[in-house]
Amino acid sequence: MANPWRGEVALVIDGQSHVMRLTLGALAELEAGLDSGSLMALVERFEGGAFTTRDVLALIVAGLRGGGWQGRSADLLVAEIAGGPMAAAKAAAELLARAFMLPGEEA
């Protein structure tokens, strides 16, 4: 079960629940893998609704890695995410919001 106070978000992939979390290492890996811009540019894309599926996938992979997953982004290309692309985008947005929340704020 995901603990939102720790910045965690749950996502079901291929019928198995995973806990995602953007640790500092996961954020650094995410930023290094972005094609353009910084983490702040990524946040702005999500806030403005201008994010791409590549953004969603990068966030999901970073969150999974922060949660201890040992897979690769290619593993997710054929995976079934419960709720489909919309659920994946929602989970990615929550993950990003929770990573930058101050104590006492809600995502």
Rank of each mutant, 00 (worst) to 15 (best):
V61L: 06
T53R: 01
M101K: 09
G37M: 05
S38K: 03
L64S: 03
E80W: 10
E105V: 15
G66H: 10
D14H: 10
L22T: 07
L39K: 07
L42H: 15
R65M: 02
G15Y: 05
D55N: 07
L95C: 08
G48F: 07
A28R: 14
T23Y: 15
R98F: 08
G84Q: 09
L59V: 05
V43G: 13
L59I: 06
K90L: 13
R54D: 08
E80R: 02
K90S: 09
L34S: 08
I81N: 12
L59S: 05
R98P: 10
R65A: 04
R6H: 03
L27G: 02
D35I: 00
A62N: 04
R54G: 04
R21K: 15
E44K: 14
L76K: 12
G15L: 05
S73H: 00
D35S: 05
L95I: 09
L57S: 14
A107Y: 11
L11C: 06
E44N: 11
A82H: 04
A99W: 12
L30A: 07
G83H: 04
G48H: 09
E106N: 14
R98A: 09
A28P: 03
P85I: 08
M101V: 04
D75K: 06
A32M: 05
A93L: 10
P103G: 11
P103M: 07
L95M: 10
P103V: 11
G68S: 01
L39V: 15
L102M: 11
G84M: 02
K90P: 00
L39D: 02
L30H: 05
E106V: 15
A32G: 02
V56Y: 13
T52F: 07
P103W: 05
I13K: 01
V12G: 00
E105P: 10
D75H: 10
V19F: 08
I60P: 12
L11I: 15
M101F: 03
L59Q: 10
A2S: 11
F51S: 15
M101R: 14
G104C: 10
A91P: 09
A88V: 06
A58Q: 13
R54Q: 07
A41R: 03
G25P: 08
T53S: 07
M101A: 12
G37V: 07
M20I: 06
A107D: 14
M1R: 05
L64V: 11
E31A: 14
T53G: 11
L102F: 13
A107S: 14
G67D: 03
A41F: 00
G15S: 11
W5V: 00
D14K: 13
P103T: 11
E94I: 00
L34N: 04
E8L: 08
Q70Y: 00
L76F: 01
I81R: 14
L42N: 13
A74P: 00
S73A: 06
L39G: 04
G37Y: 04
M40T: 12
A28I: 14
V56L: 10
G63D: 03
E8R: 11
A82L: 06
R21F: 10
Q16L: 07
A97R: 15
G37K: 03
V56H: 13
M101N: 11
L96Q: 07
A97E: 15
L57T: 09
E80T: 07
A93F: 09
A26F: 15
Q16W: 06
